[in-house]
């Protein structure tokens, strides 16, 4: 067995152990039902919840807004990074801002955003995109910095326009780094949207969780948390797979 496989086995064992332990603690009454449902119950509740369809609207809203925030962050982040790559002085000016960006408690500005954008979905999407965009910028810049000069010369020899050079040489070359940014952006978009729904909103999964929490409605709260976990893990696994394919192609596993 390779060390990698062994590590994977241990990881699964740990997960099964933790969930199993939780199950036993819940069933034996050491954790009372008001605090938490046993895991098997959460799964059953989730299935029932999804089958019942009562939360479909909330789930769709959250996922749609997170997807929107993600796409905005990717498009804006990658474009801005390419721009910064060419504008050295602007980049030197902004570098410290990027370095300290995640020390800023973005949610503290939420009330301000509501004043600016109103009570609709816009302030939530804005927060999700703002959280995600810097991870995309920083990682894309990192990738652009590592493009070998000889590849850019090759682009010139092949008489590529600036647009084609970016599209056909720079971005593909930086793709593994951009994908790293994308993985973070998925997480940040979800955090941004769900966090904002928690604070002040009338819909979405974050709102439903907080509403269920206020009402001691564990049959709704835990399945929703589980669903968020599953969605986030699924998207990340998909991106990681893609990243792996790109890296393997380049002989970097």
């Amino acid at each position: 067995m390779t060390p990698k496989k062994r590590a994977a086995l241990w990881r699964i064992a740990l997960l099964v152990g933790a969930v199993g332990g939780l199950e036993i603690l819940c069933l034996s009454g050491h954790i009372d039902r008001l605090t938490m449902q046993p895991p098997h119950r959460i799964v059953m509740d989730l299935v029932a919840l999804l089958a019942g369809g009562e939360l479909n609207g909330a789930i769709a809203k959250t996922l749609r807004n997170a997807a929107l925030a993600f796409v905005i962050a990717m498009v804006a982040g990658v474009s801005f990074a390419v721009l910064l790559h060419y504008l050295r002085s602007l980049r030197d000016m902004l570098d410290p801002v990027f370095a300290t960006y995640y020390a800023i408690p973005m949610f503290a500005f939420y009330p301000l955003l509501i004043v600016l954008f109103g009570l609709g979905d816009t302030p939530q999407i804005f927060i999700g995109a703002m959280l995600a965009v810097v991870a995309v910028i920083v990682n894309t810049l990192n990738g652009l910095d590592r493009i070998p000069r000889v590849l850019l010369k090759t682009a010139r020899v092949n008489q590529l326009s600036a647009w084609d050079t970016a599209r056909l040489v720079m971005l593909p070359c930086a793709a593994p780094h951009i994908l790293t940014g994308a993985k973070l952006a998925v997480a940040y978009s979800l955090i941004g949207i769900i966090g904002a729904e928690f604070i002040m909103s009338t819909g979405g999964m974050g709102y439903e969780i907080s509403f269920a929490y206020m009402n001691f409605d564990n049959a709704k709260m835990y399945p929703l948390i589980l669903l968020i976990l599953l969605v986030s893990i699924a998207i990340n696994t998909l991106l990681a797979k893609w990243e792996k394919i790109l890296m393997a192609r380049r002989g970097l596993s």
């Binding site: 000889v150 090759t154 020899v157 040489v169 593909p172 070359c173 793709a175 380049r250």
Partner: peptide
């Protein structure tokens, strides 16, 4: 760069994200 001139550089300039065939086809873009 004038038409009709081909350059092979000192460093490896193959595009690692393209297959050999795609790399070669790139010259014909």
């Amino acid at each position: 760069i004038p038409d009709g001139v081909g350059v092979v550089f000192q460093e490896d300039a193959s595009f690692p994200w393209l297959s050999v065939r795609e790399n070669i086809a790139f010259g014909l873009r």
